[in-house]
Write a protein that binds this DNA or RNA. Structure first.
Lengths: 168, 168
DNA sequence: GTTGGAAAGTCAACAAAGCTGACATATCAT
DNA sequence: ATGATATGTCAGCTTTGTTGACTTTCCAAC
């Protein structure tokens, strides 16, 4: 695996050199830290962590989602999710309603308190994202999203797009 | 915090709506999973994890770096890093040399075996990044990187840029 | 109607990787 | 000599992931 920018017809492929790729990799690493930093700060001290944030986010995004569906979005085991969900339900942030069609299923909703926390967390995260988007400009945002989308596993890309369309 | 795309003079700010920001947030979440998936697969089964990968990556990137410097890049405690570093040194992937100027410092290097693993891991990660870059195109790559850079904490941005310049 | 399998929940045990606090050692700098 | 710095180590804890085994509930098909 050497450098990919051979002296072929293409300075057009300069963006695919190993050095460019490595910079992309490191940018992902450092940026993800910033991405999670603000919600993490809010959650520390409360009995919650990043896993709770993720659950709250996606329940808010798709109210009434089933446990199984949430499981497939989050990509963790049901035991792991259940531990998180149980504390959120006990604390009155999430409500779990037995399905009407299929009573085995549980449909998840945020309570008022849940929505309150969700909005604190996502305000913080959006504020940083907004600043980054504004600094970088609309063109860059398009590029940002299309690289990220191309980086996802096909499975996740499908779920990402389904979520996008659900809010149109 | 409401939607930011008021009917002011600006369709120019359409990319800053809450919906756009939320899509950016979810894109980060799903893409990061893809980003780490391939190295994770290689490491599972070996006695190593993501933390070992990160240490190996940055030692390779800046050979001879001190423990303290690595600490500040990774943003973890010395106890946490030490656990990782100890196994890597024991297993002969990393070499720790006493500093010549300041004998308190340890300078870290990859051994041949270390470089071998590093290259397996980063080949996998680069392959995915390369595919994503190629799919999205050079314009998108510029945007991708500039949004990520804007998303970093200032501290991390400094470190990211220092690494970039060190390989010019 | 009984039964097989799916959805959900639970218990137990464990692992990776972060954390704090306390302390030891070697070395540098004053 | 003294204090600060760099590193390493021990012990214990937390969060969040894992597997495996098991139960309860319920739909659907036979």
């Amino acid at each position: 695996m050497g450098d990919r920018s051979g002296p072929i017809g293409g300075e057009s492929l300069l963006f695919l050199t190993d050095e460019q790729l490595r910079q992309g990799i490191e940018a992902m690493f450092f940026a993800y830290r910033g991405f999670t930093a603000d919600p993490d700060r809010i959650l520390e001290g409360m009995a919650y962590g990043r896993a709770h944030h993720r659950a709250i986010h996606f329940i808010n995004r798709a109210p009434g989602t089933t446990v199984n569906n949430l499981l497939s979005i989050l990509g963790v085991t049901k035991q792991s999710l259940n531990r998180v969900l149980r504390t959120l339900i006990e604390d009155g942030l999430v409500e779990s309603r037995v399905g009407r069609m299929d009573k085995r299923e549980r449909h998840l909703f945020l309570t008022d308190a849940g929505r309150e926390l969700e909005s604190r967390l996502s305000d913080a995260q959006r504020t940083r994202m907004r600043a980054a988007f504004r600094d970088a400009g609309p063109e860059a945002v398009i590029g940002f999203r299309s690289v990220l989308e191309a980086m996802m596993d096909p499975d996740m890309r499908r779920k990402y797009r389904a979520l996008k369309e659900s809010s149109s």
